[in-house]
Amino acid sequence: DRHTIHIGDITIHLEGFSEEELKLAEELIKRGIHLEEVKRILEELYR
């Protein structure tokens, strides 16, 4: 499954994450956390 996060003019595609995980990812990215770090956090929390 493919999910999309929109932040301003930026569109990020993250596959294989639930709606809850994507909301967390979006919040972290909006707070300035680097995408690679966001992915690592999600994997630690949900895998």
Results as ranks from 00 to 15, higher is better:
1 D>S: 04
1 D>L: 03
1 D>M: 01
1 D>N: 10
2 R>Q: 11
2 R>T: 13
2 R>G: 12
3 H>D: 09
3 H>W: 13
3 H>L: 13
3 H>M: 07
3 H>S: 06
4 T>G: 05
4 T>S: 08
4 T>F: 02
4 T>R: 02
4 T>Y: 02
4 T>N: 07
4 T>E: 12
5 I>P: 04
5 I>K: 01
6 H>G: 07
6 H>M: 10
6 H>C: 06
7 I>K: 04
7 I>H: 08
7 I>W: 10
8 G>D: 08
8 G>H: 07
8 G>C: 09
9 D>G: 11
9 D>I: 09
9 D>M: 11
9 D>Y: 08
9 D>R: 03
9 D>C: 07
9 D>T: 10
10 I>Q: 10
10 I>C: 07
10 I>F: 14
10 I>M: 11
10 I>R: 06
10 I>P: 03
11 T>L: 06
11 T>I: 09
11 T>S: 12
11 T>Q: 10
11 T>A: 07
11 T>C: 00
12 I>D: 03
12 I>S: 05
12 I>Y: 14
12 I>E: 02
13 H>S: 12
13 H>D: 10
14 L>W: 08
14 L>P: 01
14 L>A: 04
14 L>H: 02
14 L>C: 12
14 L>I: 08
15 E>T: 13
15 E>G: 10
15 E>A: 13
15 E>V: 13
15 E>R: 09
15 E>S: 13
16 G>H: 07
16 G>M: 08
17 F>C: 05
17 F>N: 04
17 F>H: 04
17 F>V: 06
17 F>K: 02
17 F>W: 10
18 S>L: 10
18 S>R: 09
18 S>V: 05
18 S>A: 09
18 S>E: 06
19 E>L: 15
19 E>P: 11
19 E>H: 14
19 E>C: 14
19 E>W: 14
19 E>R: 13
20 E>K: 09
20 E>F: 13
20 E>I: 08
20 E>S: 09
21 E>M: 14
21 E>I: 14
21 E>S: 09
22 L>E: 04
22 L>S: 05
22 L>P: 00
22 L>R: 08
22 L>M: 09
22 L>F: 11
22 L>Y: 12
23 K>M: 10
23 K>D: 04
23 K>Q: 11
23 K>Y: 06
24 L>T: 11
24 L>A: 04
24 L>D: 01
24 L>N: 02
25 A>F: 12
25 A>N: 00
25 A>Q: 01
25 A>Y: 04
25 A>K: 02
26 E>L: 14
26 E>K: 14
26 E>A: 14
26 E>G: 08
27 E>V: 14
27 E>M: 15
27 E>D: 07
27 E>A: 14
27 E>Q: 11
28 L>C: 01
28 L>P: 00
28 L>T: 01
28 L>N: 00
28 L>V: 01
28 L>S: 00
29 I>S: 02
29 I>P: 00
29 I>L: 14
29 I>Q: 01
29 I>V: 09
30 K>Q: 09
30 K>I: 09
30 K>L: 13
30 K>R: 15
30 K>W: 15
31 R>F: 14
31 R>H: 03
32 G>N: 04
32 G>R: 01
32 G>E: 02
32 G>I: 15
32 G>A: 10
33 I>K: 07
33 I>T: 07
33 I>C: 07
33 I>R: 04
33 I>M: 12
33 I>F: 15
33 I>V: 10
33 I>A: 04
34 H>T: 14
34 H>G: 13
34 H>F: 07
34 H>E: 09
34 H>P: 14
34 H>L: 12
34 H>A: 13
35 L>A: 07
35 L>C: 01
35 L>D: 03
35 L>N: 03
35 L>T: 04
35 L>G: 03
36 E>G: 06
36 E>P: 09
36 E>V: 07
36 E>I: 09
36 E>S: 11
37 E>A: 08
37 E>C: 02
37 E>H: 05
37 E>F: 15
37 E>P: 00
37 E>K: 07
37 E>W: 15
38 V>H: 00
38 V>G: 00
38 V>D: 00
39 K>N: 04
39 K>F: 15
39 K>S: 03
39 K>R: 09
39 K>A: 08
39 K>M: 15
39 K>H: 04
39 K>L: 15
39 K>T: 05
40 R>D: 01
40 R>V: 03
40 R>E: 02
40 R>I: 04
40 R>K: 07
41 I>G: 00
41 I>L: 08
41 I>W: 12
42 L>V: 09
42 L>R: 00
43 E>L: 15
43 E>H: 12
43 E>Y: 15
43 E>S: 05
43 E>P: 00
43 E>N: 07
43 E>C: 15
44 E>H: 03
44 E>R: 06
44 E>C: 15
44 E>M: 10
44 E>P: 00
45 L>T: 04
45 L>N: 01
45 L>P: 00
45 L>Y: 08
46 Y>T: 03
46 Y>V: 06
46 Y>A: 09
46 Y>W: 13
47 R>N: 13
47 R>E: 07
47 R>K: 13
